[in-house]
Design a protein around this nucleic acid. Sequence first.
DNA 1: AATCCTGCTGCGAACATTCGCAGCAGCGAA
DNA 2: TTCGCTGCTGCGAATGTTCGCAGCAGGATT
Lengths: 147, 147
Amino acid sequence: MSCEPEIAQAVRDRGRRLTIQRAKILSALRHADEHQSAEQILDRVRGDDPLADISLSTVYRTLETATTLQLTSELRGASGTAVYEWAEPGTTHHHIECTACGHTEVVELTSLRLAEAEIRERAGFEADIRHLAIPGLCRDCRPGGDG
Amino acid sequence: MSCEPEIAQAVRDRGRRLTIQRAKILSALRHADEHQSAEQILDRVRGDDPLADISLSTVYRTLETATTLQLTSELRGASGTAVYEWAEPGTTHHHIECTACGHTEVVELTSLRLAEAEIRERAGFEADIRHLAIPGLCRDCRPGGDG
DNA sequence: AATCCTGCTGCGAACATTCGCAGCAGCGAA
DNA sequence: TTCGCTGCTGCGAATGTTCGCAGCAGGATT
């Protein structure tokens, strides 16, 4: 697809090598319409090309690298399985996950911008809160109930 | 120690059974001066009483339950090993962890109160941001460097 | 004090993820 | 176009955590 050169460029611009494994893995995630686990990504890659024999280790390593490069983001929720999504540059969103029923919603929280600033001032850290999983209780599960 | 009755009460008040395993596990964490992994807690329990043969599964299950009951909090950083700490009621603090070197610091972020309110309004979730691990780059690891 | 219900535990297996190592391949230089 | 450095991959083992199941034990009731 047309965005593959962009992916290639993005990887190389950051001083990493573009391997066919990386190209396929990142392209699969780029074109998925929702977040994917490592195994799901591997299935997609194999679906596109059954001869592509990429190891699961490589999927994990590629996603780790790409997350460092801010091309993707990683979410480790309570489910026990980490999921990954393509991080469209300049976009921000946050996942809130019900610790009781597992239901998740996506919200963009403007107040977290303030948190980034506060962290910079107080600790000198450059926090990355573009994509974060926040635990909580959803409307249906919280003590107060529905209302 | 003197706080064991309080732990016992806290567990029972929440409708759970107080087993010797839970008492020992929670007491060990309560008296640790920093956050502990499941394995470290098990070592402490065995250190106090070498005959106490508690399984690692039980440590994990107890910590999961206690976290649900808000007696403890769980932090899953990038290190791959989850750590737990006693959650003193009414207290709040946040861990920022450098994704490059692993260095962590503890800060209390007042701006996250706003985030809780924003989440309540926007999604109806009761978020629990009392203790959260936030990824970022520390002063030494961020591109800008030391300054 | 004895009884019962069911929540909790220990065990071992399963699962998700990371690591170590030897060999392969991207890409810059010649 | 070839060469060489070294970053990347596949494999399999190790690690950290969760799950399923059978039996035990907390604590309410009598």
